[in-house]
Design a protein around this nucleic acid. Sequence first.
DNA 1: TACTTTAGCAAACAATCGTTTGTTATAAAG
DNA 2: CTTTATAACAAACGATTGTTTGCTAAAGTA
Lengths: 203, 203
Amino acid sequence: MAATIDSPPARRDRQDSRKRDVLDAAAALFAENGYQGTSMRDIAKGVGMLPGSLYCHFPSKSELLLAVYREGVARIETQVEAAVACQTEPWAKLEALAAAHLEMLLARSAYAKVVVRVVPSDDPAAHDRLVALRERYEAQVRSIVAQLALPAELDRDLLRLFLIGALNWTQVWYRPDGAPPREIARQLVRCLRAGSHQEEASR
Amino acid sequence: MAATIDSPPARRDRQDSRKRDVLDAAAALFAENGYQGTSMRDIAKGVGMLPGSLYCHFPSKSELLLAVYREGVARIETQVEAAVACQTEPWAKLEALAAAHLEMLLARSAYAKVVVRVVPSDDPAAHDRLVALRERYEAQVRSIVAQLALPAELDRDLLRLFLIGALNWTQVWYRPDGAPPREIARQLVRCLRAGSHQEEASR
DNA sequence: TACTTTAGCAAACAATCGTTTGTTATAAAG
DNA sequence: CTTTATAACAAACGATTGTTTGCTAAAGTA
């Protein structure tokens, strides 16, 4: 078992390297032109393959989208988790979350852009699994929002949805020459901190 | 001139009636399945015509989208304007704007849904004119936000973009059995009112 | 060396896309 | 009645869609 442990890797590395190329090209194109606006031929051209060759790595366009989505959610989760871990105060955690989310969405990762730009109903065949992936990330946000000290009459779920909405909508209007992601996050959290302004001492 | 004023209308009414049917069907389908997810054949089937017959009323799919978009923006503007006019206090105006916007977006109008769901880059041929229509509405929001009393360090443009983002994102998560549009609007404005909580007396 | 595996190519598949053409039926205009 | 205009049909256009098939060549396994 240990004797053959390094014979497959060479093979495995190469195929995975190409598979990675396909994934990267698909992520870039989905992020730029949307799911329905990107054809398998576009992706093939992006990696210098023929269209049919893509099916050596992914059985269908839907599965390819799912793989990109999965990776996108994973990357956002990882970055957000790391950023939140550096903070102790709940509102500071929320701002760190927002900043990391925006950083990925606006500057860093094409994978992250796909998660926001491509809505589950864009591909009915993958709809349910896409929703499941989205919810996995939202659970992370929920756990941060749960730690906030808020007035009782303020709905926590709505606050979370407003936050995510404001964050994701940045993709529509963001320009690299405007306010940087970190500054946007700071202002957003400052806005949302509203109602609880007077209870700052509690918790 | 006044002698022939009522001879055209009969003709005009009929053709406009069919044109309206096409527009309605397109709006419903664009709202439900997106622009690229809706074919001219789908729309034709929706009004009981053959695909080619659509071109009697609209010269292309892009122009059809533009017509739906124009109508959508106009409807939102009208409703929002009426709702805002009933209020005098700036924050009350903003809440009325949010409520009217959500009412249209979530319950009332397929046209309004299209304006939010279809992003300009979905149709490169119509991109610039779609952006222009979107901006026309955003100007209306800007004028309301301009009346708010806000602390100086809070960016008005960002506040507006956060508001619109949170509003439009509701289309992703809204369920008719959850909180009604009016309640969502109330909570959202309460959240955003944050930073200016202490300056309530000013202006 | 002989066998198996597979990434990728070359070419085509059926289906669907937005759109065009030519014609017919209907109805307003003179 | 004649002329003109047009909504709608019937049918097809070429292009593009996601996908499949058969094959080749190279690399790993025994």
